[in-house]
């Protein structure tokens, strides 16, 4: 069912095959991305299993963020960007003309590199998504949604006394967890994270990583990271991108201990990148 895991099968010959426990949430086949004339992503095939964390690693400019942005069609907002191939979410092609990208993004939430809370109160930041999508019937509903989202993001205890304070007044780590709470509040199935900790200090990073591990229970998470330690800590599967190609993909442990491809080996041992 998963012909893409051939790499790790070969790499760990002799060990039992590690197959994803559940059916893949997202299936990408022959994905190509062009920025004008620049061929940014070439023939990427990948399966992203449900209820687990998958990390994309690779040197800067390798296309991992670009590919991530294909998964919720954020690339649509860039005029010169063109996507080919097939990406399926629960067996539905997300690039089908019938699919409304706005609805898709409610299902596939996103957390960005730099914390980007809106210049509104903490409460309003979280309530923004549910309000747009009409998720709350009344004020009590909305309060419940906001509190639940903040609790899941591990932020509620820190901000419960100042929900009316501006979100931009929080510390960097708190802001990023606010952005995660904001994404959770619309009840997505998948959460995409584009280097969520690159602007945070180590303590805030540890908190966000812990949070990612907890969220795995209910959400499918894809995270782009520059830190291989982070990939090793939080993800179950890892994909290595290089120059627009998906070089190698497999269980995180295998990628880091027993890489199959020379380029992966060079990258994780720090020889380039």
């Amino acid at each position: 069912m998963n012909e893409l895991t051939h790499v790790d099968e070969a790499a760990v010959s002799g060990q039992p095959k590690i197959a994803p426990a559940v059916e893949p949430k997202i299936v990408a086949r022959k994905v190509q991305v062009f920025y004008g004339d620049n061929h940014a992503i070439k023939d990427v095939d990948v399966d992203i299993p449900a209820n687990s964390v998958m990390s994309f690693i690779g040197p800067s400019g390798c296309g991992k963020s670009t590919f991530l942005r294909c998964l919720n069609r954020m690339n649509d907002t860039i005029d010169v960007c063109r996507v080919e191939g097939k990406i399926e979410l629960d067996h539905e092609d997300i690039y089908d003309p019938k699919v409304d990208p706005v609805q898709l993004r409610a299902k596939v939430g996103m957390v960005f590199q730099k914390p980007n809370p809106f210049p509104k109160s903490i409460f309003e930041n979280v309530a923004y998504g549910p309000r747009i999508h009409g998720l709350a019937r009344n004020k009590t509903d909305m309060e419940e949604i906001v509190v639940t989202a903040l609790q899941k993001a591990g932020l509620f205890a820190e901000v419960k006394d100042r929900l009316d304070a501006p979100g931009t007044g929080l510390s960097g780590g708190q802001q990023q967890r606010l952005c995660i709470a904001r994404a959770i509040a619309v009840s997505p199935e998948v959460i995409l994270m584009d280097e969520p900790c690159s602007a945070l200090d180590p303590i805030a990073t540890a908190k966000v990583e812990e949070l990612i591990d907890e969220l795995r229970e209910n959400y499918t998470i894809v995270i782009v990271t520059h830190s291989m330690q982070q990939a090793a800590r939080v993800s179950q599967r890892t994909a290595f991108f290089h120059l627009g190609l998906l070089v190698e993909e497999g269980p995180t442990d295998n990628i880091f201990t027993n890489p199959h491809d020379k380029r992966t080996q060079d990258y994780i041992t720090g020889r380039f990148g």
């Binding site: 706005v102 960005f112 747009i132 904001r182």
Partner: peptide, 21 residues
Amino acid sequence: QAMRDGSLGLGATHSETVKQV
């Protein structure tokens, strides 16, 4: 741009993003 991305990433339309963010 991060404000726009944040709003669009939550499933807001362009017009909602303009009006509310």
